[in-house]
Each structure stands twice: as C-alpha cells, then as structure tokens.
C-alpha cells in the first residue's frame, strides 16, 4: 500500500476515535494531539487500531510517529515495504 492509503487508514481510525474531528483542515506535519485535542488514551487507541488493521505491531518506541498524518503515513509505508521485502 502506498503512502496515500496509509494516510487514509490513519485518518479513518482517528475519525472512529474522535467522530467530530475535522481532518480536512489538518496539515501533514501538524501535531494531531494539539489540532484535535487528542490525549494519551486516544493515541493509545489509534496505535492499537492501526496495528490491528494493518496486522503490523507498531513498537512502542515508534508510536510517536503517528502523532502527525504525514509522519505516520511515511512511517507505515516504509515499515510495511521493509516487511514485504524481508
């Protein structure tokens, strides 16, 4: 899956956690916690949901990548490509 698809996965899972969130106005590098008022429990749930959906365990140390749409999409695309090559 490409980067756009990864971005869409993150966006959909955020919408499930925070249904009122307006993702159209969020920049690629914008901190989702600030922009959408997400707390650590929300980020925990986001990491769980994205991991489950992609069947890829995001290590705890990498979870911080998911606090921006751009960073999360780039990270997931790279990791899944590496996993595919490996």
């Amino acid at each position: 899956m490409n980067r756009e698809a990864m971005r869409a996965v993150i966006a959909e899972e955020i919408s499930a956690i925070a249904p009122e969130a307006d993702l159209s106005a969020i920049g690629e590098a914008e901190d989702l916690r600030e922009a959408l008022d997400l707390d650590s429990m929300d980020i925990f749930n986001l990491v769980v949901a994205v991991s489950k959906r992609l069947q890829f365990d995001i290590p705890d140390a990498d979870a911080g990548h998911l606090v921006t749409l751009g960073g999360g999409a780039e990270y997931l695309e790279r990791k899944l490509r590496e996993a595919g090559e490996g």
Binding site: S40, K52, D60
Partner: peptide, 17 residues
C-alpha cells in the same frame, strides 16, 4: 513503563495515568 510496554503488542500497553 517504557520497559513494560517495550515488548508488548499495542493493545497490552499501559499509559502513564
């Protein structure tokens, strides 16, 4: 907390609170 979460799948991790 970092050590506890380190080897765990996402759903089994804890938050600081």
């Amino acid at each position: 907390l970092d050590a506890f979460n380190g080897g765990k799948p996402p759903a089994e991790r804890l938050v600081f609170s």
